[in-house]
Design a protein around this nucleic acid. Sequence first.
DNA 1: TCGCGAATGATAATTGTTCTCATTTGAGAA
DNA 2: TTCTCAAATGAGAACAATTATCATTCGCGA
Lengths: 142, 142
Amino acid sequence: MHKPENLKNAGLKSTLPRLKVLQLFETSKERHLSAEDVYKLLVSSGEVVSLATVYRVLTQFQQAGLLMQHHFESGKSVFELNSGEHHDHIVCLQCGHVEEFFDAAIEVRQEKAAVEHDFAIRDHALYIYADCTKKNCSRGSR
Amino acid sequence: MHKPENLKNAGLKSTLPRLKVLQLFETSKERHLSAEDVYKLLVSSGEVVSLATVYRVLTQFQQAGLLMQHHFESGKSVFELNSGEHHDHIVCLQCGHVEEFFDAAIEVRQEKAAVEHDFAIRDHALYIYADCTKKNCSRGSR
DNA sequence: TCGCGAATGATAATTGTTCTCATTTGAGAA
DNA sequence: TTCTCAAATGAGAACAATTATCATTCGCGA
């Protein structure tokens, strides 16, 4: 789905590090990755990329609309492929597992709240922090 | 409203720095303050408190339930007196101004989303980022 | 008033992220 | 294909927010 063309379309020169990062997001089983995650995954799969480059590329991809950036409570921000469909997140406080959801009613009420308070809404973040029920949960990370 | 008793009730020894911080939150016109804000406000009003102590006290107050902590996109976290009534926030991306709102319907739908995904909700954060209409907006801070 | 454990101050250490700058690379020109 | 050069990268320094360390000081009960 995402190919070098995507980089060109985004006005980004097609370089090795960029292709590797993009490919990682497309193939990783974990959809939400932090800069550190990306760096470690690349290194552990034998790729040589600098952490600085990972940060730069992630930021560029986010600005180009290829990735979405989120700020969970953990302190570090995480990225995910931009599916084009807005959604919010439920984050497990124990294992860091993230699940996505969308609720039209919530979206509507948010817009309403912004309007009522005389704000021009630009973006919003809804994070639900909870305990998930994964059998392998509680390994504590992220 | 909040007095030394509150500290004792919270199991915290009533010390000067703690009283000063608590008093600052009670009297400041800005309801949402970062650690840096608190530190600077105290210093500029002639008080002598260490930044490390400010961080410690804020954390203790938050754990004691006196303060609520929020993580806006700015990167630094902000605190506010715990009113006891849950509410969400609209944050101006330009001037950092924060407004509060509450929408029962949103709360209900969030709970529903968590249940549907088999999560035991522990906490949630809903931040709407927008441009406010304050005449003195756009000074850019926080 | 004394004594001791808890709290504080000053500063070093950590963490996540950005910046600097010398070196390398990709993509078009020759 | 080779050359050219701006753009991209790597390595490490620099930064900002926050936490940890540890010697000194303080609050509070005996």
